[in-house]
Computed example of a mutant assay.
Amino acid sequence: MKSLKIYLATGIFLLSFSCVAPPRPPKPPKHPRHGARPMPPGHAKKVYGSKSARPFAPGHRK
């Protein structure tokens, strides 16, 4: 009976940590505010913490 409790506790412990997903990076803004100038790709890269400005450039949308 004691070993059954240990197996159940171990199983619950392992399952509670196996379902954690890494955080997703934020998506770049789709449209600038009305009347505001669009943010340059290099500045958007810095604001959102990306390593590359390519996803923020208008010619590189996929």
Rank of each mutant, 00 (worst) to 15 (best):
residue 44 A to R: 03
residue 45 K to H: 00
residue 27 K to P: 12
residue 25 P to D: 00
residue 35 G to R: 06
residue 23 P to A: 09
residue 45 K to S: 02
residue 29 P to L: 00
residue 43 H to P: 00
residue 53 A to E: 14
residue 61 R to Y: 07
residue 11 G to T: 01
residue 32 P to D: 00
residue 35 G to L: 05
residue 26 P to T: 01
residue 29 P to M: 01
residue 57 A to F: 07
residue 55 P to T: 01
residue 24 R to F: 08
residue 30 K to I: 11
residue 2 K to P: 05
residue 5 K to S: 12
residue 22 P to H: 07
residue 43 H to F: 09
residue 12 I to G: 06
residue 50 S to G: 04
residue 25 P to H: 03
residue 31 H to P: 04
residue 34 H to N: 08
residue 60 H to I: 04
residue 50 S to E: 11
residue 60 H to T: 11
residue 47 V to F: 05
residue 32 P to N: 02
residue 16 S to H: 11
residue 58 P to Q: 02
residue 53 A to V: 07
residue 23 P to Q: 02
residue 15 L to N: 03
residue 17 F to C: 10
residue 56 F to L: 00
residue 41 P to W: 00
residue 19 C to K: 08
residue 6 I to W: 13
residue 53 A to L: 13
residue 41 P to Y: 02
residue 46 K to P: 07
residue 8 L to E: 06
residue 19 C to N: 07
residue 23 P to L: 01
residue 41 P to T: 04
residue 45 K to Y: 01
residue 16 S to W: 12
residue 13 F to W: 13
residue 36 A to S: 11
residue 53 A to D: 15
residue 6 I to D: 15
residue 41 P to I: 03
residue 34 H to L: 09
residue 36 A to W: 07
residue 39 M to Y: 09
residue 33 R to I: 01
residue 33 R to H: 13
residue 59 G to C: 08
residue 61 R to L: 09
residue 30 K to S: 04
residue 61 R to D: 15
residue 54 R to C: 13
residue 28 P to L: 01
residue 40 P to D: 05
residue 34 H to K: 13
residue 57 A to H: 08
residue 30 K to L: 14
residue 19 C to H: 10
residue 47 V to H: 01
residue 22 P to F: 11
residue 21 A to Q: 12
residue 7 Y to R: 02
residue 46 K to L: 09
residue 27 K to E: 13
residue 31 H to Q: 06
residue 59 G to E: 08
residue 61 R to C: 12
residue 16 S to E: 01
residue 50 S to L: 14
residue 61 R to T: 09
residue 19 C to Q: 11
residue 54 R to K: 12
residue 58 P to M: 03
residue 43 H to R: 12
residue 59 G to F: 04
residue 42 G to L: 12
residue 41 P to D: 06
residue 42 G to N: 12
residue 5 K to F: 15
residue 11 G to P: 07
residue 15 L to W: 04
residue 11 G to N: 03
residue 44 A to I: 11
residue 45 K to V: 00
residue 21 A to Y: 09
residue 7 Y to H: 08
residue 25 P to E: 00
residue 1 M to F: 15
residue 48 Y to G: 02
residue 4 L to P: 11
residue 28 P to N: 01
residue 45 K to C: 03
residue 55 P to Q: 05
residue 24 R to E: 07
residue 39 M to I: 07
residue 5 K to I: 13
residue 8 L to I: 13
residue 60 H to W: 14
residue 34 H to M: 10
residue 34 H to D: 12
residue 37 R to E: 10
residue 57 A to T: 15
residue 48 Y to V: 02
residue 59 G to R: 07
residue 44 A to M: 11
residue 7 Y to N: 03
residue 8 L to R: 09
residue 18 S to M: 14
residue 59 G to Y: 07
residue 51 K to V: 03
residue 6 I to P: 13
residue 14 L to C: 15
residue 12 I to D: 06
